[in-house]
């Protein structure tokens, strides 16, 4: 079932719905039954994130309160995410500017080979042990402030990206804003995209940024992979 209700509204629906149901059940007669029914419906839409009434009205509140912008201008899809990192713009810029560092925190990037000041070759993992590759060039940059790049030539996964480093208020490090745009595809390529950007591209990028932050702030990325566990 598709979701057309925002998270805030869903929680309110669950709580409100549950209360109404209990209130309804505690009353005798038809009025009680009606209240309980309305309550049950509310709770349902909260849990499922789907409102039949909204659907009938052609309405949706599902995206209005999410922090990422997923727009479909032309056929490109854009994803935007930001994170605050307790390091200077200089340090963050220097690390990111060497694209060969990116696979260290971008989960689906296999490797990046830098050819010269502007050009590089990217390899990303795709489903069933496949990979997708493309060449990229830097289209715009300003030292310690921002970098923009795009895929070039004939690639099955055209994409563009940019990262911006803005000093955060006193003692709070740097606000890092990443924007990725790509053209969603059907079929096998669609799958490759899915593995590139995840089922929820903004979630995927948020996770990559979280790892970037950890690496920059602590020198490592917290993990439990490889720790012991009972064999039940």
């Amino acid at each position: 079932m598709p979701r057309n209700i925002s998270d805030g509204e869903r929680i309110a629906s669950i709580i409100g719905g549950t209360m109404l149901t209990l209130l309804g059940l505690s009353r005798k007669g038809d009025a009680g039954a009606v209240i309980a029914l309305i309550g049950g419906g509310l709770a349902f839409r909260g849990i499922s994130g789907f409102s039949p009434v909204y659907k009938a009205l052609g309405m949706s509140t599902a995206d209005s309160d999410s922090s990422d912008v997923a727009e479909t201008q032309s056929r490109m899809v854009g994803v935007k995410r930001s994170v605050t990192i307790n390091r200077s713009p200089q340090e963050l810029y220097a690390f990111w500017r060497n694209f060969e560092n990116l696979p260290g925190f971008m989960k689906h990037l296999h490797s990046v080979k830098v050819f010269d000041e502007k050009h590089s070759h990217w390899v990303a993992s795709a489903p069933m042990n496949n990979t997708v590759e493309w060449n990229a060039e830097i289209t715009d940059e300003q030292e310690d402030k921002h970098i923009a790049w795009r895929s070039t030539g004939d690639t099955s996964v055209p994409n563009t990206g940019s990262v911006q480093f803005t000093p955060a208020p006193e003692g709070r490090g740097t606000q890092v804003l990443v924007q990725i745009r790509y053209e969603p595809q059907a079929g096998l390529l669609g799958k490759a995209y899915l593995s590139l950007f995840g089922e929820e591209p903004s979630q995927q990028i948020a996770e990559d940024l979280r790892r970037f932050k950890a690496l920059m702030e602590t020198g490592e990325i917290a993990t439990t992979t490889g720790q012991p566990k009972g064999r039940t």
Partner: peptide
């Protein structure tokens, strides 16, 4: 090594599990 493992509600057992290893540089 021996370790106390959770196996469900009100069910903990002492099991034999592998020893932990260093996984990150600051471990």
């Amino acid at each position: 090594m021996r370790a106390v493992c959770w196996n469900g509600s009100t069910d903990v057992r002492v099991e034999s599990v592998p020893d932990p290893k260093i996984l990150n540089p600051r471990d």
